[in-house]
Design a protein around this nucleic acid. Structure first.
Lengths: 124, 124, 124, 124
DNA sequence: GTGGTCTAGACCACT
DNA sequence: GTGGTCTAGACCACC
């Protein structure tokens, strides 16, 4: 499994791990039933504390994304893909919504906001 | 001056104050040269520590938004409106950009993103 | 008497007044026995608090630069010119000394310091 | 790390800390990437409040001198040495410039100023 | 009255 | 363990 973490990011490391695993499940890189690396091996690989990895796995388990079996390891949960899509979509919607609100707060007209949006869509 | 703070927000109180004052300057509610409430009086009004208000004022001064004169008080700086607008616009652009990136990361097509954007624009 | 004050300077207003009066005595613009404007008239002229002017006059009196006669006003003290020169010279020496120390702290060689000094001497 | 503070100085304690850390970086005593003592440990060592140390670290971070990582500590930033040297040099120049101006204000001739400068250079 | 600094605690999140 | 934030006091200098 490929995880990239950034120590200088404002985002906590454990959240970076959570997001990347979620993204990989969404993309199908990780599939239901598949085993995740052990807490200690991933911690060793990323050169971070095992507690940090543990916290990430705990978050994922709490959300029902993974299942941890004592003494065997952690595995991607089966069949939650629809749910995951839903929450992810909600997140995108929220992010977009807050950006629009910020723009309106600043005084931008709908015209200007749409223009800016199109520029961003066509750019990268 | 009207400031509303939320003690349960994840955003630090001092940042909430900073943002709201910036917004009011941008909206023209606060104009150049105008006096801000004293650290102590605003703290009393909001029922928070004076140090928290001071930290907010320190941030604003550091950004050149306000000028503080020892023994007299703090005042909105003159003529930085254009600069403020620029930085604010950049913030909106960034927020929008990150939302779009998040959507693409999730696998949304440009079509779907545009659709979602339009729904948000017409909603509130 | 001509006094110019700067409200945005880091230097307290009362000190600005003290320094300018000292300078004028040194330059001979103000002579021994000459009357200073009353606290309230100078305060009115400069549009500052009378307490601030009072504090400046108090400092000057404490240093023996002026003499205040109750009910009559404040006057430049006689014959202190030599003393004033001495203290002023000391101040210049201190300022120069601290600048040199700062330069050495930074790691400048005597060579470099002398060079910089000459550039400054020939500049303005 | 060696920090000496003076409680009776007019200079705020947090500024004393800022200056001394800057000086040590400039001298190479502290190198890029090196860890600073934790806020609490330095506070304990110097017998001052942790908030005072934190304010010093905040100033340094704001200037880009150090990088603070949540939950890990503060570290000397890499590669800003050239920038630091430049600003430091400017400070020396300013200090020297103001000393010269003060001397001229007092009426010293260039001759006298040069003489005084040489005495100071050869003294300590 | 004002801001500038400092203290000695506290709670939280991150590692 | 670490830093980030906040509190409720205090003293000082300046206006």
């Amino acid at each position: 499994m490929e995880i990239m973490i950034c120590h200088t990011s404002m985002q906590p490391i454990y959240e970076q791990i959570v997001e990347q695993i979620k993204t990989q499940v969404l993309h199908g890189t990780l599939k239901g039933g598949e085993a995740l690396p052990s807490v200690r091996s991933l911690a060793g690989e990323l050169k971070i504390s095992a507690l940090t990895v543990k916290k990430a796995y705990d978050c994922l388990e709490q959300e029902g994304m993974i299942v941890t079996v004592h003494g065997k390891g952690s595995f991607i949960a089966e069949g939650n893909l629809a749910l995951l899509e839903e929450t992810w979509k909600k997140e995108v919607e929220n992010a977009l919504s807050m950006a629009v609100e910020k723009g309106r707060d600043y005084g931008m007209t709908d015209e200007e906001l749409r223009e800016l949006f199109e520029i961003i869509m066509e750019e990268p």
